[in-house]
Simulated scan of single mutants.
Amino acid sequence: MAAFHAAVVAHDGKRLAALFTSSGSSWFNVLSDQRYALARVKAPDAAKIRMSSYQDFADFVSKSKASLDPQHSNLRIQTDGIIASAYFDFRFMIDGKEQNRGSETWQLVRGVDGWRIASISYSSNLPG
């Protein structure tokens, strides 16, 4: 998580992308009912469950001129040393303002080159 945070703060999309499995990775964002209602006001066909990719996020991180600060708390990890699941609460700060908050889970796998993130799923709630 420290490497993820450091890559985001440094706007280093290449270093961020290296934390993921090279293929087969998934990225899901699920909007809370309140956030979904707001999204539908802007776009009536908005999806409640949105699929993206670590490549899209790495591209955003690389191109953003804003100060980015993903904050993580209440981390819980389960592992057998080969696979792992990390569950935590997060706040995503942009230029010092909370833009998103929720819960997040990572599924990780340990290969010959160390731990890699295989998937991320997170909820999106209205800023607190």
Rank of each mutant, 00 (worst) to 15 (best):
G24F: 07
K48S: 06
S64Y: 08
W115G: 03
R35Q: 12
V30T: 11
L38R: 13
W27N: 04
I83W: 02
D59G: 11
S25H: 13
D89Y: 08
M1Q: 11
G114I: 09
S124I: 14
T79N: 01
M1H: 10
A47I: 07
R40E: 12
N100H: 13
I49K: 09
L75V: 14
L31H: 06
F92I: 04
R116Q: 04
D12F: 06
I120V: 15
A66C: 05
Y54F: 15
V8S: 11
G128T: 12
G111N: 06
W27C: 00
R50Q: 13
D12A: 13
M93W: 02
Y122C: 05
W115D: 01
S62F: 02
Q107V: 07
M51T: 12
S124K: 01
L19M: 04
L19H: 06
R116E: 00
F60M: 12
A7K: 04
M93P: 03
A39P: 10
A2K: 14
D45Y: 11
H11S: 05
F57R: 03
A7L: 14
S26D: 11
N74W: 02
D113F: 05
R91C: 10
D45V: 10
S22I: 09
V9C: 15
T79D: 00
Q34W: 02
P70Y: 14
S52A: 11
S32W: 01
D56G: 06
Q71E: 15
S103M: 15
F4L: 15
W115M: 06
N125T: 02
L75Y: 02
Q78I: 05
F57G: 03
K42I: 10
A84H: 08
E104G: 13
T105C: 04
A6G: 06
L108F: 04
L16E: 04
H72K: 03
V8D: 05
V109N: 00
G81Y: 02
F60V: 02
S73C: 08
